[in-house]
Simulated scan of single mutants.
Amino acid sequence: MNTPWAAVAAATAFVWLGMVLAISFLEAPLKFRAPGVTLRIGLGIGRLVFRALNRAETALAAVLVLAVAAGGLPAPVVVLTGLVVGLLLAQLGAVRPVLNRRSDRVLAGEDVPRSRTHLVYVACESAKVLLLLALGVAALSV
Protein backbone atom coordinates (compact mmCIF):
# COMPACT_ATOMS: atom_id res chain seq x y z
CA MET A 1 0.00 0.00 0.00
CA ASN A 2 1.33 3.43 -0.96
CA THR A 3 0.16 6.30 1.23
CA PRO A 4 1.11 9.08 -1.23
CA TRP A 5 -1.37 7.50 -3.67
CA ALA A 6 -3.95 7.40 -0.88
CA ALA A 7 -3.39 11.13 -0.37
CA VAL A 8 -3.88 11.72 -4.10
CA ALA A 9 -7.08 9.66 -4.00
CA ALA A 10 -8.39 11.59 -0.97
CA ALA A 11 -7.54 14.98 -2.46
CA THR A 12 -9.12 14.03 -5.77
CA ALA A 13 -12.29 12.82 -4.06
CA PHE A 14 -12.61 16.02 -2.03
CA VAL A 15 -11.95 18.30 -5.01
CA TRP A 16 -14.56 16.38 -6.99
CA LEU A 17 -16.97 16.59 -4.04
CA GLY A 18 -16.50 20.36 -3.84
CA MET A 19 -17.19 20.77 -7.54
CA VAL A 20 -20.40 18.73 -7.38
CA LEU A 21 -21.63 20.62 -4.34
CA ALA A 22 -20.80 24.01 -5.85
CA ILE A 23 -22.29 23.37 -9.27
CA SER A 24 -25.15 20.94 -8.73
CA PHE A 25 -26.43 22.18 -5.40
CA LEU A 26 -25.49 25.86 -5.45
CA GLU A 27 -25.05 27.29 -8.96
CA ALA A 28 -27.72 25.25 -10.74
CA PRO A 29 -30.70 26.23 -8.59
CA LEU A 30 -29.53 29.80 -7.98
CA LYS A 31 -29.14 30.78 -11.64
CA PHE A 32 -32.90 30.47 -12.16
CA ARG A 33 -33.51 32.99 -9.36
CA ALA A 34 -31.38 35.72 -10.92
CA PRO A 35 -33.33 38.64 -12.35
CA GLY A 36 -34.02 38.30 -16.06
CA VAL A 37 -32.93 34.67 -16.34
CA THR A 38 -35.62 32.84 -18.27
CA LEU A 39 -35.95 29.07 -18.46
CA ARG A 40 -34.33 29.07 -21.91
CA ILE A 41 -31.40 31.22 -20.77
CA GLY A 42 -30.94 29.14 -17.61
CA LEU A 43 -30.98 25.91 -19.60
CA GLY A 44 -28.45 27.29 -22.05
CA ILE A 45 -26.13 28.32 -19.24
CA GLY A 46 -26.73 25.05 -17.41
CA ARG A 47 -25.80 22.96 -20.43
CA LEU A 48 -22.48 24.77 -20.75
CA VAL A 49 -21.72 24.56 -17.05
CA PHE A 50 -22.66 20.88 -16.73
CA ARG A 51 -20.72 19.96 -19.88
CA ALA A 52 -17.64 21.56 -18.29
CA LEU A 53 -18.36 19.90 -14.94
CA ASN A 54 -18.73 16.50 -16.57
CA ARG A 55 -15.42 16.91 -18.38
CA ALA A 56 -13.73 17.84 -15.13
CA GLU A 57 -15.41 14.90 -13.38
CA THR A 58 -14.18 12.54 -16.08
CA ALA A 59 -10.63 13.79 -15.61
CA LEU A 60 -10.92 13.49 -11.83
CA ALA A 61 -12.32 9.97 -12.18
CA ALA A 62 -9.30 9.02 -14.30
CA VAL A 63 -6.90 10.45 -11.71
CA LEU A 64 -8.78 8.61 -8.98
CA VAL A 65 -8.67 5.27 -10.80
CA LEU A 66 -4.96 5.74 -11.48
CA ALA A 67 -4.23 6.58 -7.84
CA VAL A 68 -6.21 3.60 -6.55
CA ALA A 69 -4.65 1.19 -9.05
CA ALA A 70 -1.09 2.46 -8.56
CA GLY A 71 -1.36 2.65 -4.80
CA GLY A 72 -2.71 -0.81 -4.11
CA LEU A 73 -5.26 0.79 -1.82
CA PRO A 74 -7.55 -1.28 0.44
CA ALA A 75 -10.84 -2.83 -0.67
CA PRO A 76 -13.15 -0.13 0.76
CA VAL A 77 -11.36 2.54 -1.29
CA VAL A 78 -11.46 0.34 -4.39
CA VAL A 79 -15.17 -0.40 -3.98
CA LEU A 80 -16.10 3.24 -3.35
CA THR A 81 -14.04 4.28 -6.36
CA GLY A 82 -15.85 1.74 -8.53
CA LEU A 83 -19.22 2.92 -7.28
CA VAL A 84 -18.58 6.62 -7.84
CA VAL A 85 -17.03 6.07 -11.28
CA GLY A 86 -19.88 3.73 -12.22
CA LEU A 87 -22.42 6.31 -11.10
CA LEU A 88 -20.71 8.99 -13.19
CA LEU A 89 -20.75 6.70 -16.23
CA ALA A 90 -24.45 6.00 -15.70
CA GLN A 91 -25.18 9.71 -15.49
CA LEU A 92 -23.18 10.48 -18.62
CA GLY A 93 -24.47 7.52 -20.60
CA ALA A 94 -28.10 7.30 -19.55
CA VAL A 95 -29.39 10.32 -17.64
CA ARG A 96 -27.66 13.29 -19.31
CA PRO A 97 -28.69 12.28 -22.86
CA VAL A 98 -32.36 12.26 -21.82
CA LEU A 99 -32.00 15.66 -20.16
CA ASN A 100 -30.15 17.01 -23.20
CA ARG A 101 -32.90 15.88 -25.57
CA ARG A 102 -35.50 17.62 -23.40
CA SER A 103 -33.47 20.81 -23.13
CA ASP A 104 -32.96 20.75 -26.93
CA ARG A 105 -36.73 20.81 -27.28
CA VAL A 106 -37.15 23.63 -24.74
CA LEU A 107 -34.41 25.67 -26.39
CA ALA A 108 -36.11 25.12 -29.76
CA GLY A 109 -39.22 26.76 -28.32
CA GLU A 110 -41.35 23.67 -27.72
CA ASP A 111 -43.68 23.61 -24.74
CA VAL A 112 -42.68 20.37 -23.02
CA PRO A 113 -43.94 18.97 -19.71
CA ARG A 114 -41.68 18.81 -16.67
CA SER A 115 -39.37 15.82 -16.62
CA ARG A 116 -38.90 13.36 -13.81
CA THR A 117 -35.46 12.59 -15.25
CA HIS A 118 -34.22 15.73 -13.54
CA LEU A 119 -35.12 14.15 -10.20
CA VAL A 120 -33.13 11.06 -11.18
CA TYR A 121 -30.15 13.31 -11.90
CA VAL A 122 -30.51 15.02 -8.51
CA ALA A 123 -30.70 11.61 -6.81
CA CYS A 124 -27.53 10.54 -8.63
CA GLU A 125 -25.77 13.75 -7.61
CA SER A 126 -26.86 13.21 -4.00
CA ALA A 127 -25.56 9.64 -4.04
CA LYS A 128 -22.32 10.86 -5.63
CA VAL A 129 -21.85 13.39 -2.82
CA LEU A 130 -22.19 10.65 -0.21
CA LEU A 131 -19.88 8.29 -2.10
CA LEU A 132 -17.20 10.95 -2.60
CA LEU A 133 -17.34 11.93 1.05
CA ALA A 134 -17.01 8.29 2.13
CA LEU A 135 -14.23 7.73 -0.41
CA GLY A 136 -12.26 10.76 0.74
CA VAL A 137 -12.54 9.70 4.38
CA ALA A 138 -11.62 6.08 3.56
CA ALA A 139 -8.58 7.19 1.57
CA LEU A 140 -7.48 9.49 4.41
CA SER A 141 -7.69 6.52 6.78
CA VAL A 142 -5.07 4.54 4.84
Rank of each mutant, 00 (worst) to 15 (best):
L119V: 07
A7V: 12
W5A: 06
L66H: 00
T38A: 12
K128G: 08
V79F: 06
T117Q: 13
L92W: 09
V137F: 05
V85D: 01
V129G: 07
L135F: 00
V106P: 14
G109W: 03
P113R: 13
L39Y: 03
I23M: 09
T38H: 11
W16G: 00
A22L: 13
I45D: 10
E125K: 04
V142A: 09
A94T: 13
R105M: 03
V142H: 03
L133K: 06
S141H: 08
N100Y: 03
A59M: 09
V120C: 08
A67C: 05
A6I: 04
Q91P: 00
V20Q: 11
G82L: 10
L130M: 08
F25M: 04
V112T: 15
A7K: 08
V84W: 01
A28T: 15
E110T: 03
V15P: 03
I23N: 14
L26E: 06
L107I: 09
R47G: 13
G71R: 07
A127P: 12
T117C: 12
N100V: 08
R105F: 08
N2G: 01
A62D: 01
K128Q: 15
L89H: 02
P29L: 03
V79D: 01
T3E: 11
F32E: 11
S24T: 06
E27P: 00
L131R: 15
I45T: 14
V95A: 09
R33M: 07
A7D: 13
W5E: 00
V37I: 15
L73N: 08
G72Y: 01
R101A: 15
C124G: 14
A59L: 15
M1F: 02
D104Q: 08
A134D: 12
G82F: 01
A56S: 15
L39E: 15
A9F: 00
V68P: 00
L73C: 06
G72R: 12
A62E: 00
N100M: 07
W5H: 09
S141W: 02
A61H: 00
Y121P: 07
G42W: 11
L131I: 06
L107Q: 14
L21R: 01
A34Y: 06
L107E: 14
A7Q: 10
